[in-house]
Amino acid sequence: MELSLVVSGIETGAFYGLVALGYFLFLRATAAVNFAMGAYVMFAGLAYGYFSEDPSAPLVLGLASAFGAAVLFSWITEDLILRPMARRARDEFGAVMAIVALMFVIEQLAGLAFGRRPLLGRELLDGALVVGSLAIDYHDLLALVATLGTFAAVAAWLKRGRYGRMLRAVGDNEAAARALGLPVRRVRLVAVIATGLICGLAGILVAPQTALSFQSHLSFAILGFIALVLGGVGTPWAPLVGGMLVSAIEAASARYIGGFARDYVLLALVILVFSFRPEGLFTVRVRS
């Protein structure tokens, strides 16, 4: 296999891992699987692409709009949808349907705001690193470094940060956390904002790599969720492992079976994981 394909697979896996990390944090904070995650990433990527199309426009405008939109949508999901529903009734099916509805609302908003044509964002860094016959764009290197840095920061925050440790407690047992006097609402808010920032980063990094449309969110949501399922939620690094596995499976199925079989292979693998190891590759260790 060519080295360039390996590099491309790593970049793709890192992106899937970032989306899965968004799922991971939101799940730990709210106990809800947020299928609108792909829509956050899509909207952020389109916002960045829209405001960075003009080379003379300040790049900070695209960055601020991408991060701001993703954080706003993440907050709306938790504060205006999930929390009011939790106060009224523990209706998990209703919560899922409300999130799916929000996902399509964001899709239509993106179509209205940025148009129906695909958008390609400006690279954060120009040029390429040439190693022999292989040329790697500096933007792609930045994306990989930013992804690894994000995972390391989240892992350190959950282990040592004040709100990170409280989030672990809230995610393990919210009722017990409330009984201990932990500020559950504030902890969830911090985690939801962090989720939005991660989705904003994912959108910014992917926008120069592939042309985005207002319907791109469906594949992002599905593949990010599959990465979460494969990796599990036992450690913050698990979503990255899951993302790399999804990327490797994509490449292998396309090479040996055909590109048309990718989705079928991934869905079959998800069924097997749910059947025989629903906790994923990495599980939470509970001390007795």
Rank of each mutant, 00 (worst) to 15 (best):
R168Q: 05
R168H: 02
R168W: 04
A169Q: 03
V170M: 08
V170K: 10
G171Q: 06
G171E: 04
G171W: 06
D172H: 11
D172G: 12
N173K: 05
E174R: 15
E174F: 10
A175L: 07
A175N: 11
A175P: 01
A175V: 10
A176D: 10
A176Q: 13
A177E: 02
A177Y: 02
R178E: 08
A179S: 14
A179C: 09
A179W: 04
L180A: 14
L180M: 13
L180C: 08
G181F: 06
L182F: 15
L182I: 14
P183G: 08
P183N: 07
P183V: 07
P183T: 07
P183C: 07
R185M: 05
R185H: 14
R186V: 11
R186E: 13
R186G: 11
V187K: 04
V187T: 15
V187I: 12
R188N: 09
V190Q: 11
V192W: 06
I193N: 12
I193E: 07
I193M: 12
I193D: 13
I193V: 15
A194T: 15
A194Q: 09
A194G: 15
T195D: 07
I198L: 13
I198D: 08
C199S: 15
G200P: 09
G200W: 06
G200A: 09
I204Y: 12
V206R: 07
V206W: 12
V206F: 09
V206T: 10
V206P: 01
A207Y: 08
A207S: 15
A207L: 06
Q209N: 09
T210V: 12
T210H: 13
T210Y: 14
A211Y: 13
A211I: 06
L212M: 12
S213F: 04
S213T: 15
F214T: 01
S216M: 01
S216C: 01
S216I: 02
H217L: 01
H217R: 00
S219L: 06
F220W: 10
F220G: 00
F220S: 00
F220D: 00
F220Y: 11
A221V: 02
I222H: 02
L223D: 07
L223H: 07
G224Q: 03
F225C: 02
I226L: 13
I226S: 11
I226F: 08
V229G: 03
V229S: 04
V229D: 03
L230F: 15
L230I: 05
G231L: 08
G231V: 10
G232V: 02
G232I: 01
G232H: 03
G232M: 03
G232E: 03
V233Q: 08
G234V: 00
P236Q: 13
W237I: 03
W237E: 06
W237S: 03
